[in-house]
Design a protein around this nucleic acid. Structure first.
Lengths: 219, 219
DNA sequence: TGATCGTAGATATTCGAAAATCTCATATGA
DNA sequence: TCATATGAGATTTTCGAATATCTACGATCA
C-alpha cells in the first residue's frame, strides 16, 4: 500500500492501520489477549515492529498494557460507551459552534462534499448491503468536515480519537433516522444554526447509544 | 525506580517517564531532532526500546514522526498554546460541573488533601526556590482531584494529557495570583459553587496564557 | 550557470535471537 | 485440607546487528 503522496507505507505504519481497524471493527475481540508470536504471523511483521504498533495503540486507548504481562484489546462496557458518547457530544458541540462561526464558503464546500459522499454510501446500504468500513469513513469525514473550521487542531485530533473509539460500539447500520439526522446537520451548517445542530447531534449520538444498548441485550 | 506496588519498573517504562518529563520541562527543546543513537546513550536503553517510547509519545502528541525521517520533539507555538488552553477550559469546566454534582465527602477529602499539598509547595517557592517538577505534580493532582468525581475515566484521561501538554508552556512560577485562585477553587468546590469555579478557572488558565505570552516576548 | 544524477555517509527501520519475567501445574510441608 | 515452594514451559522484554532509506555533496551534462 502507498500513501497519498505516493510514498511507500512502512511496514510499521501499514500494520498499525490494519490492527487499529481490526480493533474498531471487532475483528480483534474486546479484552482478548494479544499474543505477539501469533500476531507476528497474522500481520507479517516482526515482534519489535508489533510492539511499536501496540505501544501506539495503547496511548490511544485501543489497547491496554499491564506490567510485564503483555497487551490486550481494550475492553468494552456500557459505562465506557456512555463516557465516549458524553465526551463526543462535549467536544463536537463546542467544535461545531466555533466552526459555524468561522466557516467560509470553502468550508461549506467541504461539508456539502462530505455529506454527498456519506448520503450516497448510506443509500447503497439498502441495495448492496452494509460496508461498515466505508460507512464509518464517510461518517467520520462528514463530522470532521462540520468541525473543520473550528480553528483548533488539538480539538480536532482529540475529537477524532474519541470518534474512532466510539465507533467500536456503533457498528450496526441504523437506517433512515441516521440519514435524516445527517441531512439535518448539513442544513443547519449552511444556515449557521448552531442551536438546532446541537439538538440534532445530541439526538444522533444518544440514539446511537440506545441502539447499541438494545443490540447489546439481544446479543 | 519502583512503582507503588513495589514491582520494578521496566526499562521501557522508566525511559518513557524520563523522556516525557524531559519534553514537558524543556530539557528536550521543542522541534529538535531526536537522533536515536545519541538518545540511546543518554537514556540507557536500546534503539528498539527507544522507538517504543517515541511511538507512545507520538500518539500523545509530545513527539512528531514524519515518514521515514525519524522523530522530533513536538514544536510549540502561540497558536498551540491557545488551543490547549481552550481545550483545557472546555474539558475541565464540564468535568468540574459533573464532579461538583456527584462529589461526596470522600471527594472533598481528596480535594482538601490535594490543595493542602499544593499550597504547602507553593509557599516553599519563596523560601527554597521553585521546583517546577514538584509544582507541576501537585498542581496536576489538585485539578485532578477537583474533577475526580466526574464519573468519566475517558474524560479524565483526555484532560490529563491536555494538562500535561499545556504545562510545557506554564513553566515559570506566577506567584500570589495562582495561590489565591487555587484557594478560591477549593472553596468553590466545598460550596459546590460551579459558576464561580468556572469563572476562577477561566481566569486561572487565561492568566497563565497571558503570562506565558509575556515571557515569550521577553525571551 | 543551472539542473539532474549518482554516490558515500548518516540515519531510521526491521529483524531474529538472547535475557528476563510470568504462568501454571506439581510437589512439599504444616 | 490448605498454603506455600519449585520448576518447566510459555511469553514478554530487551538487545545488537542486518537491511532499507534518506541527506547532502560533488560530478556530469545541457
Amino acid at each position: 500500500m502507498t500513501s497519498l503522496e505516493g510514498r511507500p507505507l512502512s511496514a510499521g505504519d501499514s500494520g498499525y492501520q490494519r490492527i487499529r481497524s481490526d480493533i474498531i471493527f471487532g475483528v480483534l475481540t474486546p479484552s482478548v489477549r494479544l499474543k505477539l508470536d501469533a500476531m507476528k504471523e497474522d500481520y507479517g511483521v516482526s515482534i519489535s515492529t508489533l510492539r511499536e504498533i501496540l505501544n501506539r495503540l495503547t496511548s490511544e486507548g485501543f489497547v491496554v498494557a499491564e506490567g510485564q504481562r503483555g497487551f490486550e484489546v481494550a475492553p468494552i462496557s456500557i459505562q465506557n460507551l456512555r463516557e465516549l458518547a458524553g465526551l463526543r457530544i462535549l467536544l463536537e458541540h463546542h467544535a461545531m459552534a466555533e466552526s459555524f462561526r468561522a466557516g467560509d464558503v470553502e468550508w461549506e464546500g467541504r461539508v456539502v462534499s462530505a455529506h454527498h459522499k456519506l448520503a450516497a454510501t448510506e443509500r447503497t446500504v439498502l441495495s448492496e448491503g452494509d460496508d461498515p468500513e466505508l460507512r464509518k469513513r464517510y461518517d467520520g469525514e462528514f463530522h470532521q468536515a462540520l468541525i473543520s473550521s473550528c480553528g483548533s487542531r488539538e480539538l480536532m485530533q482529540t475529537h477524532a480519537v474519541v470518534f474512532d473509539k466510539y465507533f467500536r460500539y456503533a457498528l450496526r447500520y441504523r437506517g433512515a433516522e441516521t440519514i435524516n439526522q445527517h441531512k439535518a446537520l448539513l442544513e443547519c451548517a449552511l444556515k449557521r444554526d448552531i442551536k438546532s445542530a446541537r439538538a440534532v447531534l445530541t439526538d444522533h449520538i444518544n440514539g446511537c447509544v440506545a441502539h447499541a444498548l438494545a443490540s447489546w441485550n439481544e446479543g
